[in-house]
């Protein structure tokens, strides 16, 4: 009975981080405008904290591909985001992206108005569209000779529009893309994030063999199906879809699970398993693992 009153563990943390990430890109231009504060700069296309620079991997990749030039600082700036995606998967999408924040806020309002806990997916498209979107976007950029995602990327545009409003008191017309993405979200939850976002595609690609993943413990599962309802990407964790490259490790399924059949796990390096040839043992260990022993 205790399990039924279980509170959400990751959702409040995630929402708090999303809120902070969005407040950051609002606060930075305001501080800049008022107090000439430039210690933290930029938004999620390129952000700098002092001398620590981050560059969004897709924007950097497009810049390299379309200009056919390598620039050291750009590669260094891309290193940390790529490493994070490699180890943790598409966590940027779920934990930082301002579009995610806007979507969550929209969902929150919809939940209050409709009094339903979960929204239904109205438009079902093939999941692989995400890769097609990534490939076609890069191809398009290379054909046109300009990095297209850099000025049409919804997460980046949120930051740019905020800067334009705060620093120059105007808005750029590209902002309609953010509105379009939000309209798509109203139509069907996370329609853009699920099927069209090239950045999500790239991060998912990099994080296909991520270390942090949602583990499913069959023994605890009562097949209530709450996890697949809770998943913003409409994945089905109990059928192993949480291990796919699409999962962005938001932890909503873990929170929704009443029997603790799902948990975050840190994948150990596989090389050891193969070297010692104890694959069978490792597998059986996994199934006997106590779900309470969270590694995170």
């Amino acid at each position: 009975m205790n399990e039924k009153t279980k509170t959400s563990k990751y959702r409040p943390i995630r929402f708090f981080i999303l809120l902070c990430a969005t407040l950051l890109i609002i606060a930075v231009p305001i501080l800049n405008n008022r107090f000439q504060f430039t210690f933290i700069q930029g938004w999620y296309q390129s952000i700098s904290i002092g001398n620590l620079w981050f560059v969004s991997p897709l924007e950097g990749l497009e810049s390299i591909l379309t200009s056919r030039m390598l620039y050291g600082p750009l590669l260094v700036g891309m290193a940390i985001p790529v490493l994070v995606a490699f180890l943790l998967g598409r966590v940027f999408c779920a934990w930082i992206c301002p579009i995610s924040f806007l979507s969550e806020v929209t969902d929150w309002f919809i939940r209050i108005l409709s009094r339903k806990k979960y929204r239904k997916t109205r438009i079902i498209l093939p999941r692989r569209m995400l890769w097609a979107s990534l490939v076609s976007e890069i191809a398009l950029a290379m054909i046109a000779g300009v990095p297209i995602f850099v000025f049409l990327s919804p997460p980046g545009l949120v930051g740019r529009e905020l800067m334009m409003v705060i620093l120059f008191k105007t808005v750029a017309v590209e902002g309609v893309i953010v509105l379009a993405v939000m309209a798509m979200h109203l139509l069907s939850p996370r329609l853009f994030c699920r099927h069209l976002c090239p950045l999500g595609g790239l991060l998912g690609c990099i994080g296909a063999k991520r270390r942090l993943y949602v583990e499913f413990n069959v023994e605890n599962c009562i097949k209530c199906g709450m996890c697949s309802k809770a998943c913003p990407l409409a994945l089905d964790p109990k059928n192993g879809q949480a291990l796919s490259a699409y999962c962005w490790n938001c932890g909503d399924c873990i929170d929704s699970c009443k029997t603790e059949a799902l948990s975050f796990k840190w994948r150990e390096i596989k090389v050891n398993d193969e070297n010692t040839n104890h694959k069978v043992n490792v597998k059986s260990n996994h199934s006997h693992q106590n779900p309470v022993s969270h590694s995170l």
Binding site: P29, T38, G42, Q45, S63, P147, F151, G156, R160
Partner: peptide, 18 residues
């Protein structure tokens, strides 16, 4: 000839310009 392809429109130059 290179500018549009190399620039990622991150706006940091605009932000830092005093």
């Amino acid at each position: 000839s290179l500018f549009a392809s190399k620039c990622i429109r991150c706006g940091r130059c605009a932000e830092v310009c005093p």
